[in-house]
Design a protein around this nucleic acid. Structure first.
Lengths: 141, 141
DNA sequence: AAAAAGTATTTCGCGTATGAAATATTATTG
DNA sequence: CAATAATATTTCATACGCGAAATACTTTTT
């Protein structure tokens, strides 16, 4: 690892792990035909029926403009719908389309267990260590 | 955090931390005028004088095409130079320009301690825990 | 030495990701 | 109630990040 510092090592690892998370854990993602962020949005929609763009942003910790783009691509695939609120026409609700619901049903197991599968070989103790470490990390950033 | 799983929590934290890392620890990055990946490339160049694109890719764990893009943007700012090897004209060497060297000199401290500064409040023990956790994580992905 | 195989880099298409500006609408306030 | 402020979302410009295809060479085979 050259002569580089621990700080650098940590940052590198985060980058590397994140990249692997986004660019798919091999086949699992491919079978759903969704990317990771798309799957995450579908996942939260499957539990909430109907959400504002800003609610999705908050839940998945991305800014509105990013989420708007993800919704664009999901809408293009006919997986979600945009619905203008009638009470306040500034608000846009997002909900799963029929096709979206079918996907959720078909890949229910994959979607629900996706992240757990990644860590299936981790012991409970390892998970706790990782989590604690990451939370410490977040606090310092 | 809703009713979500530990796996999901870990993945979310990684995404969140990575995003904060890339999008800059506020002012530190801004003063250099570089983005995080650009700073990382400048950093390795400052220690190696002259590197092939593929060597940079390996060192910073990004694929060639990504590095090529980063080099494009550094070159546009006149911070690095591309130099075709005379022995083997397929090879492109990258080196810092005068301006690049000036930046390294001027922000030496920032560049060298950038990552350590992030974790300045972490104890040695915390650092080890984080590192061990991340390495475990990487193995499972 | 011409064809084929291999190597190094760039280009391309796609999908994030952000912040700032633009748009559209609703609420406030002078 | 008209000007202004506030809110919700989208659009825009910029920069990653990847894999696949293209390009440009070099080495190996035949």
């Amino acid at each position: 690892m050259d002569d580089l510092s621990k700080g650098y090592e940590i940052a590198s690892l985060i980058r590397e792990i994140n990249s692997k998370l986004n660019h798919g854990i091999k086949n699992q993602l491919k079978e759903t035909g969704l990317t990771m962020p798309q799957l995450i949005v579908v996942k939260v929609l499957s539990k909430n029926k109907r959400l504002k763009v800003s609610e999705i942003s908050k839940k998945i910790k991305l800014v509105n403009s990013t989420v708007s783009g993800i919704i664009d691509r999901l809408e293009k695939q006919d997986i979600v719908r945009r619905i203008r609120s009638k009470e306040d026409r500034r608000i846009v609700y997002i909900e799963l389309s029929n096709k979206g619901n079918d996907i959720v049903k078909k890949y229910q197991h994959t979607i629900n267990n996706f992240f757990n599968n990644i860590f299936i070989n981790c012991s409970e103790e390892e998970m706790e260590t990782i989590l604690k470490g990451l939370e410490t990390l977040r606090k310092h950033i």
